[in-house]
């Protein structure tokens, strides 16, 4: 059985590399990770951007470079244009008594306040060493925005892995090859396992690649990540099979996936925006538990007991859904 299961998997893999959409789904976690890396702010990123005119305030610039991102422009007109652009950047104009801070007027208050404080510290020549503050932390070095994106990326990767399965089934339906498989000496179980490997591997490899590219490897327990991604990908595989047998063409399968995005997005929004007393509203959704579990894994504070508990909930919901959809999947694969 194992050999035939592998044959089915190898065929799907082979064909997926020839199909643009499937190939896109295989590489999207990597593209997504690079995109998040490029756009998500790191924890070391400064919260204030300042612009100066070249040749002015050289001492102030040297002092402020440790605390802010400095941009230099050639003259006042250029500085004015730069400040008027849509982002939050504060202009420092003039020196001594004539010096002033130039803003658009719509910057967040804390940005302007921070710029003012920096100017004051610079004028009074205050150093970081002068501070008596003692800082204690939990050692989290990753930006919360990056973790949020990584978590959504992992969810999306699992979902796309399921969609890859649905596309392969749609291909079989369009080519009418399921009937040929049904008269071949391969069991339905071996065929389903063979079809599922692709989804599981894409989810496991894609999510691991994403974590590595995002530089989260230091905080993440990889064994926990792989186990939990495997558990959550079972839901995606089931969705993939259901979408596959219910779709007659690629466009229908894509449309079905869009529909699944709805509970997925609702689960993320529910976890992030609902107050603690209303979190129970989302308990029905396996995506909620997957998102919650992934968040703990990415923060590096998921205990094995929590992993077991979250996996059991996800598997329990998956089993209930499977009991409901299994007859439809079976019927869809009969011809």
């Amino acid at each position: 059985m194992f050999k035939k299961t592998l044959t089915i998997f190898k065929r799907d893999l082979h064909v997926s590399y020839r199909d643009f959409m499937s190939l896109f789904m295989i590489v999207i976690p990597i593209i997504l990770a690079f995109a998040v890396n490029a756009f998500a702010p790191g924890i070391e990123d400064t919260t204030v951007n300042l612009v100066f005119i070249e040749g002015e305030n050289t001492e102030t610039i040297a002092y402020l470079e440790d605390f802010a991102k400095i941009t230099k422009v050639k003259d006042y007109d250029s500085l004015e244009k730069r400040v008027l652009r849509r982002d939050n950047i504060v202009g420092f104009v003039g020196e001594g008594e004539d010096a002033y801070i130039l803003t658009q007027g719509n910057e967040p208050e804390d940005v302007v306040m921070f710029a003012k404080l920096l100017k004051t510290y610079s004028e009074y020549d205050r150093k970081v060493e002068d501070s008596t503050a003692i800082i204690k932390d939990f050692g989290v070095k990753t930006s919360p925005t990056k973790i949020l994106w990584a978590n959504m990326g992992i969810l999306l990767t699992s979902l796309l892995a399921g969609m890859l399965i649905s596309l392969n089934i749609v291909e079989e339906k369009m080519d009418n090859t399921i009937s040929a498989i049904n008269v071949a000496p391969i069991s339905r179980t071996a065929w389903i396992f063979g079809k599922s490997i692709m989804g599981i591997l894409v989810a496991l490899i894609g999510c691991s690649a994403m974590v590595l590219i995002l530089g989260l490897a230091g905080t993440v327990n990889f064994l926990q990540l792989l186990i939990f991604v495997f558990v959550s990908s079972l839901i995606s595989i089931m969705i993939g099979f259901l979408e596959g047998v219910n779709s007659d063409d690629v466009m229908t399968a894509v449309a079905s996936t869009k529909m699944v995005m709805l509970p997925l997005a609702a689960s993320v929004a529910g976890y992030e925006f609902l107050s603690a007393k209303w979190q129970w509203v989302m308990y029905w959704s396996p995506f909620y538990w997957v998102y919650k579990g992934n968040l703990s894994i990415l923060n590096g504070d998921f205990t094995w007991l929590e992993l077991l508990w979250h996996s059991a909930i996800v598997l329990g919901i998956a089993a209930l859904v499977f009991a409901y959809v299994a007859p439809r999947i079976r019927k869809g694969l009969e011809n």
């Binding site: 050999k3 035939k4 044959t7 065929r11 082979h14 064909v15 020839r18 199909d19 291909e171 369009m174 080519d175 009418n176 090859t177 009937s179 040929a180 498989i181 071949a184 000496p185 391969i186």
Partner: peptide
């Protein structure tokens, strides 16, 4: 089968080789 049912994204030989592995 009356209605041909072969994998359109695979070559003719790949189709036959794939099925051969199932026997």
């Amino acid at each position: 089968f009356e209605q041909s049912n072969v994998y359109s994204k695979m070559t003719a030989k790949e189709n036959l080789k794939f099925y051969a592995k199932l026997f």
